[in-house]
Design a protein around this nucleic acid. Structure first.
Lengths: 144, 144
DNA sequence: GATGTGCATGTATAGTATTCAGCCACAAAC
DNA sequence: GTTTGTGGCTGAATACTATACATGCACATC
C-alpha cells in the first residue's frame, strides 16, 4: 500500500491541474482522512485537526470537506454521516461502498454494472439520475 | 389510489398479526407520513403531530419512527435524513428510491436485479450484505 | 495602489438524534 | 385481588451534525 505522502502529492498535482489550490488546511484534512481506517465523522475529524490547527471550528472542517468532496478526493457516507478518503480520484468512476458493521472498515467498489442497472431502472420510469448513493452494510470477509 | 384509511387499516392488521401494538400514536404518525407528498423530516413531522398531540417531543417522534422502521411501514432516506411511508410493507421487497431534486417526489422501486447485482459484487470480495441503501437523486419525469 | 477573487476566521444558530429517569396501563402469575 | 413484569409513553436534557453570515486576509491583476 502506497504511503500517505504519495497520495497527498497526487492530490496536490490533481488540484493544481484543475486550477484549485491545495492549501495546507486541505492537505491536512485529506491526510487525516487517508490515515484513517474506515470512515470518520466531521467532529472527530475536527478533534484530530485541532492538534495541528487549534483554532479550527466546525465550519473550518465542513468548508474543507466541501472542497474535497467537490473534487472527488473524499466521499461522504450518507448512511453514517461520515467521510472517507478516495484513493483514485483521477479516474471518473462510479462509487459504491461496503461498510462493515463490525469492524467499521469501508471498502469502495466501482461497479459500472451496478450504476448501469440503476440508471436503466430509473429510465424505465422516466427518471433522470444525476447522483447515486449506494451503500451496503454487513460483514466484511474478516468479520463474518 | 387507495385512501389513507385503507392503508392504515392494513397496517394495523399487519402489526397485530405480528403481535405488535398499533397504538394511536403510531397510527397518527403513519397516517401523517401517508398524507405526505414525498418525504418529510422528523421535526417537520413533529410539528404536524403536535396539532393533535400537543405534548409530543422529538423523542416521541423518533421512538414511533423506530417502531415503524422496524416493521417496514416506513423507510428512511439516508441521503436527506427524511422519512417516507411504505405502501406495501407486507411483501418482503428490496427497496430503492428515486428522489426528485426539483419537486421532492420520492418514488420507491423494487428491483430484485439491482439487489442481486450489489449482492454479487459484494460476495466477490467476500462481503456479506445485510442491509442496502440505494438512493438516486435526479429529475423525475414531470420535472425534466 | 486599487480591486477582485478565493480562502480563512469567528460567532451564532439551525437541524438531526439519543439518553435516561420515571410513570402508566395492561396482562400473566401468584 | 394484589404483585410483578412488560411495553409504551412522557419529560427534560444533551449530543451530534451542519449551515449561515459577516468579516478579514493574501495574492494576482490591472
Amino acid at each position: 500500500m502506497a504511503s500517505i505522502e504519495v497520495h497527498v502529492n497526487k492530490a496536490r498535482v490533481f488540484c493544481e491541474k484543475k486550477g484549485a489550490r491545495f492549501t495546507s488546511l486541505r492537505e491536512k484534512v485529506y491526510a487525516l482522512l487517508l490515515q484513517q481506517e474506515g470512515a470518520i465523522g466531521a467532529y472527530e475529524l475536527l478533534d484530530s485537526l485541532k492538534l495541528s490547527e487549534p483554532g479550527a471550528k466546525p465550519a473550518t472542517v465542513y468548508r474543507t470537506l466541501d472542497f474535497l468532496l467537490e473534487f472527488g478526493l473524499v466521499h461522504k457516507l450518507e448512511s453514517t454521516n461520515a467521510f472517507v478518503a478516495c484513493h483514485h480520484f483521477d479516474c471518473n468512476h462510479p462509487v459504491q461502498f461496503l461498510i462493515c458493521d463490525s469492524c467499521g472498515e469501508v471498502q469502495e467498489i466501482q461497479s459500472e454494472g451496478l450504476k448501469e442497472t440503476l440508471n436503466k431502472q430509473a429510465q424505465s420510469v422516466g427518471f433522470n439520475v444525476i447522483k447515486q448513493t449506494i451503500e451496503a452494510h454487513g460483514l466484511c470477509i474478516s468479520c463474518k
